[in-house]
Design a protein around this nucleic acid. Structure first.
Lengths: 238, 238
DNA sequence: CGAGTAATTGAACCCGCTCAACTATCGTGG
DNA sequence: CCACGATAGTTGAGCGGGTTCAATTACTCG
């Protein structure tokens, strides 16, 4: 689901390749495909807001989204970044529980919620697939709780870089990971400020653990070192 | 150690009342009940450890558990407290993703994982029920991410007290909420130290927002004030 | 090239942590 | 019943990692 080979090489979006149905039989797939419509969101656009009536479920076809919750005074916590195959809007509540915005140009498959829910009950295996997907998200959320509650800024950044590397290990350059999101998003994902993100990356750069060829790509020169740092085995040497 | 008052007036645990089957037809319920065995855990006991082979799925019949993840150096993040009806061990992975320990005396229903998984595919509606339960956990996890990443100590404590109140609003005394867990657990749940938890509770007590009749129960005198604080609308008056 | 936004860097501050001492509570056994 | 030790919780003093505020530099796109 998160792993997704050569994603950006897809000149035309595969409208039939519904990731939620992966592994289901053809008849089931067509049932689900039947209620899907396509929607685009340009960079920066809001797909839906926390608190809106949850009328649709979405699946990411291409591009990347940020999901976040906010406090009344504007403080944000990004709960996750979603790329091709990711599902959103799946609350069994009446309202969306978070806001979804496009980080890049995004293509979405939209499923009207009422009809989608009916399919979950009718299409054999679909509930099971969604359960797997949701369990995966929950696992990621629990990892993130450990990160937010107990890791230092350095450990957070190291964990984040390795995470992004896992996410789209897309056969490109070996150790180069692309960060489509801004520093602002990184900060709000890790529970830090943009200044701390910037300073921490600068320190990793000085230590030659990473290199920053451009602003939105990072070369993980010393992955072993990053893994030590991410686990809290950072050692005492500054 | 903890007397565990009126709530557990259940002399005999209801072995048939499987919460995961709530709403399923009788035949489905009996299928699930058929593979359940009972297990007890005394206070402080470990049910399973992060990284152990995930051989069983459990359901809490009574009592309370803490689930947590830990870093190599011992830092802990409690990802949740589970009471009657809660499920644990549901990873679709081979290994448990967190450690589960009993906070009070606990009664569990244990389901061998292989057989449980088979039932998920065979019993109609079961996957759907588990999806609902998991979605609920995910929602809670996302709220907790906002708390851990962006709330102040005071906001964390206020949110926590209201959460505990919601959790077992069991018709007992109007505003008295019982905290079965130790300060240590509260701290590791909120990403704070025990000292900060203690100091913050003391401040709320000085402000007459709460009262502490005993160590493990809290009187929410001014719930409105707590809700302001929890949302970050704390106001400027010390 | 120039305006606007994003990112970096520096300096001072502060919230929550660390370290330490003290107090309260509980369980045990004389 | 109290004495005792062990554990949990509270309180205080000082520190420090990360924030805040501010200035500078680097991009991006007309």
């Amino acid at each position: 689901m998160y792993a997704h080979a050569a994603s950006t090489a897809v000149a035309k979006i595969d409208l039939g390749g519904l990731a939620i149905c992966h592994g289901l039989e053809q008849r089931a797939r067509s049932h689900v495909a039947a209620i899907a419509t396509i929607q685009q969101a340009h960079e920066g656009a809001t797909v839906f807001c926390e608190g809106d009536r949850a009328d649709n479920v979405y699946e990411v076809a291409s591009g990347m989204l940020r999901l976040y919750k906010a406090l009344p005074d504007g403080r944000r916590q990004i709960t996750g970044f979603l790329s091709a195959g990711g599902l959103l809007g799946l609350s069994h509540n009446d309202l969306y529980l978070y806001t979804a915005e496009a980080i890049t140009e995004v293509n979405l498959r939209r499923y009207p919620r009422a009809r989608f829910e009916r399919l979950v009950d009718e299409v054999p295996g679909l509930a099971r697939r969604l359960l797997t997907a949701t369990s995966d998200e929950l696992r990621a959320a629990q990892d993130q709780m450990l990160l937010l509650g107990r890791k230092t800024a350095m450990e957070k950044i190291a964990s984040f870089l390795l995470m992004m590397d896992d996410l789209h290990r897309d056969g490109g350059d070996a150790d180069i990971v692309r960060l489509p999101m801004r520093r602002n998003d990184v900060a709000d994902y890790l529970g830090l400020t943009i200044e701390t993100v910037s300073r921490t990356l600068a320190k990793l750069k000085r230590d030659r653990t990473i290199a920053l060829p451009t602003h939105d790509s990072i070369d993980l020169c010393d992955r072993d070192r990053l893994e030590e740092l991410a686990a809290g085995d950072g050692g005492m040497d500054s």
